[in-house]
Write a protein that binds this DNA or RNA. Sequence first.
DNA 1: CTGCCGGTTGACTCGCCAGTCAATCTCGTC
DNA 2: GACGAGATTGACTGGCGAGTCAACCGGCAG
Lengths: 207, 207
Amino acid sequence: MTSRNPQGAIEKRRQILDAAIRTFARQGFHACRVSDIADEAGVAYGLVYHYFRSKDEILDTLFLERWDVLLAAIREVDDGDLPAREKLRSIATFIVESYRHDPELMKVIIVEVTRAANSFGRRHLGKISEAYALIAEIVAKAQADGEFKSDVTPQFAAMAFYGAIEQVLTGWIFDLLPSGSEDFPQATSFIIETICGGLEHPAVHSR
Amino acid sequence: MTSRNPQGAIEKRRQILDAAIRTFARQGFHACRVSDIADEAGVAYGLVYHYFRSKDEILDTLFLERWDVLLAAIREVDDGDLPAREKLRSIATFIVESYRHDPELMKVIIVEVTRAANSFGRRHLGKISEAYALIAEIVAKAQADGEFKSDVTPQFAAMAFYGAIEQVLTGWIFDLLPSGSEDFPQATSFIIETICGGLEHPAVHSR
DNA sequence: CTGCCGGTTGACTCGCCAGTCAATCTCGTC
DNA sequence: GACGAGATTGACTGGCGAGTCAACCGGCAG
């Protein structure tokens, strides 16, 4: 029977994960010790190893949990039949709102995984690229439909789009950009404006 | 007298730095040991500590050396009186060419410093932001002149621009994007097209 | 020839921290 | 009320790798 934990065990596990988010966000993955996480969670050192095989597995869990949600969101948008500009807007909004809702978790995911190409980033490269590929697909479809011009490969466009978003999040994370509540939607629409503006067909008079 | 090293010492120092670039690029900063650098350079372990106070100082040196060159290049472009689009093109070209010329060094700088926000990135945040600020200034000037529209803050625009470039480089570094010799100028002009296209005034028919 | 000093060597130290494990607790079950 | 399985505890170990250091080398100066 696993029913020994009416749900206490699941809660404890969650409690450790949440403590890990705070601890990783505050100190960084490498700089924090497992004992810091245990302290933050208010549990004994050894209990962390009852629920997770290693310190790495904690971060892996946090990343995968969240990234799968992101991928699902992108896929859902992708399947709809909005114009590409609106699809990309939904994705950008989703990511920005994720940050607004839980900045610590997003900080950990971006700083310790997505941009940590030599440690966790490499391990999860496949998962991360799935997002790029889905975005590229949206661009490719828009190019086929004539909504976007075709002088740029979808792969490059996807990277530029995602890179712009992530850099803005990074700016918020490290206080290089203002992050008042009105800045979030503004940044989102700016990114869409900029990237889609460049991707769409140029208008008559320009260049 | 320091003239004891007719120049042999300076060469040795350089030799260690070059070995460090290769070693960091191959294994990553954290995964490589100081002894790996020494081996790669063909010198004894202890000699590394004759020229550098610590392992960190080696990476700091590599980063500052290169970043100062980048800042100088941006400043020079900034001082000219090209249209903003061409200024940004010069900057993008400079960065992309830096990568083409020495991919290992750029990999180290991007992966281990620029995007390593919890270790070296934090230490050099000031230096890194200087680049963002200079780019933002170009955008601000273009907005004042009417070349760019003003519905986006220069700071956001700078982050998006730099983020797009860095993400493309990251794509090359990790083989997510094709990096044949024709891809470099193409990517550059794409980024300019996209970002400037979005920053400039929209043309008549669009939207 | 001798002394000196910067350059060079690599074996060793020392602190840190992930991960282990044996002991203890808790609580549902019979 | 006692048995057992999972939950919980925290002291301990083991390995790793950055940084130290005492010895050694080689060439120039006097």
